[in-house]
Write a protein that binds this DNA or RNA. Structure first.
Lengths: 195, 195
DNA sequence: TACGTTGGCCTACGCTTGTTGACATGAGCC
DNA sequence: GGCTCATGTCAACAAGCGTAGGCCAACGTA
């Protein structure tokens, strides 16, 4: 074992290529079809490998999904935000994240019909957006509600633009989306409680 | 007398009861499980009938779904809106519609993973919300974009509250939701184009 | 050369799915 | 009585699913 460690420090497993090919194909299928219709067989075919490879590397379909949608929203350090620009910054950042790859679309599509997917979605927004809300919103006690409201607008846009594909929502330019949504998110996070 | 009424010229098909039992069960299952996992067998069992009855009455699963989610948003006559209250009226109305029965939840869950479901969703919002937007927004040319923005917020709330069930979104009282969202929808529909 | 490990394919099992068609039942009309 | 049609049950089909396990080729090490 000391040998195996001295010889190839990282054997650069040639299986790594297969693993990522599977994950890429899985993300694409989950994003396009949702959980049930994204079959292991179809994913394997996309990745040009045998279905049993998926089982070997990820255990079962649930494990594959979990690995495929492990994601970090990569929100910048809350301290680095200008408080009155948080709305614009968030909307811009989310648009970039959604269009960068298909992970978030996959997560949303699956979350709509799958218990584990919904749980994962709650986790991501609860753990990553909530801390930021706590920082910028006036009363920390309102942070969960305010984060949820901001989520509702951000996810609603993603839903209409990337999942349901309402033509006018798809047609909007990025800057237009930002111009419209930034004040909304800003208000949800920092404005005084209405009424 | 009672006989002539109990056996009317139109036999008042006793299948009508079965038909609606199927539809009720179907709506419940589609809302809870989405399209794929809502199996015809499960729906039939809920309705206490044989799966083949579903086929007889609705042709196939797609037909059943189409019948189950035929819905009218029941938006009031656009002319009856006070222009500066359209945001509050819409949010209130939508909350009531979503909580009145499970059709909209079923539609959203299915729309997220099913092509036909997404198409139906586009149709409903395009045909029922758009005319209202045309009435109240300043420049009719912007109506589609503004209606889509309003949809994004309304559907985003439904997504987080009724589908993904973010705890803070579920916990919000109806009046609170209205207080937060009404200004947003109002702005999307009637405020001057930003920037 | 022989060997264990790794990466990969193939076949098959058990199950569920949507869908079909043959058969039973029961009420209304001749 | 018989006929007809609407209503409902039952059994079965072909297809597709997730998953399991055995077999094979290639390679690094002894």
């Amino acid at each position: 074992m000391s040998q195996s460690q001295s010889k190839p420090p990282t054997p650069a497993r040639r299986s790594e290529a297969t693993r990522t090919a599977i994950l890429d194909a899985a993300r694409e299928r989950f994003a396009a079809d949702g959980y049930e219709r994204a079959t292991i067989r179809a994913i394997a075919k996309d990745a040009n490998i045998d279905p049993s490879m998926v089982m070997r590397y990820y255990g079962n379909k649930e494990g594959l999904f979990a690995a495929a949608v492990a994601i970090d929203l990569k929100l910048p350090d809350p301290a680095s935000f200008q408080r009155d620009e948080v709305g614009r910054a968030l909307v811009t950042h989310f648009l970039a994240m959604w269009e960068e790859n298909e992970v978030l679309t996959a997560l949303l599509r699956v979350g709509a019909t799958n218990q584990a997917g919904a749980e994962r979605m709650r986790g991501i927004f609860g753990e990553q957006l909530l801390p930021l809300a706590r920082r910028v919103c006036p009363d920390p006690e309102q942070a969960p509600a305010r984060a949820a409201l901001a989520s509702s607008q951000l996810l609603g846009l993603a839903l209409t633009r990337y999942v349901l594909r309402f033509p006018p929502a798809v047609a909007l330019a990025r800057e237009e989306v930002v111009a419209w949504l930034a004040p909304t998110v800003q208000r949800y996070l920092t404005a005084p409680h209405p009424a």
